[in-house]
Simulated scan of single mutants.
Amino acid sequence: MNEPAKKEVLSAPRAAPLKRSSLYEAVAERLRDMVMEGELAPGSRIAEKSLCEAFGVSPTPLRQALKVLASEGLVEMLPHRGARVTTVDREEVRDLFEVMAALESLAGNLLVVRASDMDIAQVRALHDEMMEHFNANRRPQYFALNQQIHARLAELSGNRVLKDLEQSLTLRITRARYVANLDSARWEESAREHTYFVEALEARDAQALSEALSLHMRKTGQAILQGLPASP
């Protein structure tokens, strides 16, 4: 039996030529990271020629990638004028978290019925690893596992529409989190909230889990809104 193909990992510097079967996907991935991390600033125009030279690609895969990012709300296509990075809209961030809080509440009710004991044990293992990073003050690793846990919970809910919605909205929320300046007090509070809802999941307490997940998302939204820079 043939072994499944392993996904190629991009480890080259940003300016190195890209090699991948679906080149525009690799370009989209790189551009997405640049937007998320602020390397391409909100409101800035996309310098297509410079990026093509940096990535070692023709304009076609770059423009295909920009269409992908436009569908995700990260860039805006300008008629006959290329593209620019969208700004983080405070009202949109508020609306996103209201929807995410409702999705998390639904996920909590579904999880206690549909997640197996092994599934819950895997979530616990991810949580414990995340807390190791928290205790060692390793923020990037902590937040990477934080997102992985939420994605796994959405998957374990067994509802594909919920999973797809969460994935789409999380992408836009992640960008707002990068822009916001979250303080250490909120980080500590968030870690405690994670511990609480993992314990509720282990106890298969639907009400406690649903309420904890929803509250966690609402408080995260409030913190991000407070941390966003003021509009000019």
Rank of each mutant, 00 (worst) to 15 (best):
A223M: 07
P232A: 02
I173V: 12
A54F: 02
A15C: 14
G227M: 05
N181C: 11
F143T: 10
R172N: 14
A200M: 11
K67S: 07
E98G: 02
Y196F: 12
E29W: 09
V93E: 01
L96H: 00
A54R: 00
A200D: 09
I224S: 02
K163G: 08
I120L: 07
M1S: 09
L153M: 10
F143E: 06
D89Y: 05
L201G: 00
R124G: 04
A230F: 04
I173R: 13
R20A: 02
R81P: 06
A151F: 09
R124P: 02
N137T: 13
N2Y: 08
N135M: 07
S105F: 05
F55T: 00
L103F: 02
E188C: 09
A83S: 11
G56K: 03
S231Y: 10
M217V: 08
P229T: 04
E48N: 11
F134I: 05
P42C: 10
K19Q: 03
E37V: 13
A65C: 05
E91L: 07
I149Y: 03
L201D: 00
R45G: 08
R84W: 12
E211S: 08
L40F: 12
S21R: 01
D33A: 15
T174M: 13
L213Y: 06
M100I: 08
T170L: 13
H194I: 09
L111Y: 01
R160A: 15
N109R: 09
A26P: 00
A121S: 11
R172H: 15
D95R: 01
E53L: 11
E37P: 09
D89H: 07
A115S: 02
E202D: 09
A15F: 14
H216L: 12
E39T: 09
M1E: 07
L18V: 01
G56R: 02
S11K: 05
Q148C: 06
S105G: 13
H133C: 07
P79C: 03
A203E: 11
R81S: 12
R172T: 15
L106G: 02
R81Q: 15
W187Q: 14
F143R: 04
A203M: 06
R138N: 13
V9N: 08
G108K: 00
E189N: 14
L78S: 03
L18W: 01
V123L: 08
K7Q: 08
T195D: 15
K49E: 14
I46H: 01
E193R: 15
N137W: 09
L106C: 05
N181I: 11
S50Q: 15
L126D: 06
L74W: 02
V93Y: 02
